[in-house]
Amino acid sequence: MDIDVHKVAMLSRIRLTDKEAAHLGPQLGNILGYIEQLSEVDTTGVKPTAHPHDVAMPQRVDAVSNANRRDTLQKPAPNTESGLYVVPKVIE
């Protein structure tokens, strides 16, 4: 199967050199080719399963349970300033 690996990489926000693309592209094609056997299965009228059990989601009471832990939570951040996360300029 032939796929536009650069487009998929861009959607995934992964840089792909041409060399990597040449390597990963055919591998991806093989994987998707293997997956295509699913088309043999007759799934007419079969409901999709997204969750293994037929259960409803639990819900939470609307009460504040988190205090300010900014300093701790920002410790792993690559770049912060005055409590804000810093990133290269976002162009809208």
């Binding site: 939470r60 349970s65 988190n66 300010n68 900014r70 939570l73």
Partner: peptide, 14 residues
Amino acid sequence: GCSTSFGAEPNTQT
């Protein structure tokens, strides 16, 4: 369970 109150210091309600 973070508060939604408006106008807090940045990232203190996370």
